[in-house]
Design a protein around this nucleic acid. Structure first.
Lengths: 136, 136
DNA sequence: ATTTGACTTAAAGTACGCTTTAATGATTAT
DNA sequence: ATAATCATTAAAGCGTACTTTAAGTCAAAT
């Protein structure tokens, strides 16, 4: 059940150096060590790292994650603050969803313009243009 | 119909310095100048900048945008390469959508765990844990 | 025995995308 | 006339998140 940093790294798809970096930054407060000082990862640690990387990949800053951890370590009374941080990230996710939708629209439009040029349906001089007004 | 850099900046919600930086990097090849060397932005320029920032905000690198522009300047024969770049970005958008969905799930779950702790429905010692197995 | 490989640390380096600074010039307002 | 406001450039600086390097410890394999 316990894993080495290499195993953890492989299971998570996350470089061992990055895991050490996260621990140093205070994102992983409960990683124990064996008799040689080597890190031991349990399943719950992997789950926590998964959560951290999930939030990181969607743009939450290391400093914000650190803050959540620090608050959690102070106990239940800090739940309102933690909630506020997560709700802020939820907002950020909504913003990203909006940007993603716009980008999907734009890339699809560009690709179909290319198709039309290649089929000869469209004059070829629109290379550096958007179709006016369609992108908010 | 023509705009100063300040007007463009305000209309786009993008710092003037950033617009200059994009031009210097070759992302905006067709910006003309007035008799004093000041940039003049037309609606089509604004549309193009909008497209560039849309792609940038979703993680496309400045170098990739530059490459698209360079290819477009070489004419219609480069459409296949441009298409390839855009299709790669489309893949990237799908990856981001997946990450966004995971993050939405995780943040919602965390928030409802907080709610349950506050309502007394859940024991309060799960602060640093994910609910096992629910996040892929 | 010694080589191989996994682990440790602290610190320096890198990539990227701006952002700020500094030095200068022109137009408009008072 | 002079100050404020807008513009220009090149270059330096910055923030973030790693990533790499260097130097070392330990245990198993040859």
């Amino acid at each position: 059940m316990p894993f080495s940093i290499k195993e953890a790294s492989e299971m998570l798809g996350c470089p061992a150096h990055t895991i050490r970096y996260y621990e140093k930054e205070g994102l992983l407060p409960n990683i124990t060590r064996d008799e040689h000082g080597n890190r031991i990862f349990e399943q719950k640690d992997l789950n926590w790292i998964k959560l951290m990387t999930c939030f990181r990949r969607t743009g939450m800053k290391v400093a914000a994650l650190k803050q959540i951890v620090n608050l959690a370590l102070q106990g239940e009374s800090t739940i309102p603050q933690r909630k506020a941080i997560l709700e802020e990230h939820q907002q950020e996710l909504h913003r990203q969803q909006h940007e993603l939708n716009e980008a999907f629209y734009a890339v699809n439009q560009k690709l179909s313009i290319y198709d039309e040029i290649q089929k000869g349906t469209l004059a070829p001089d629109r290379d550096l243009r958007m179709d006016e007004g369609k992108l908010q």
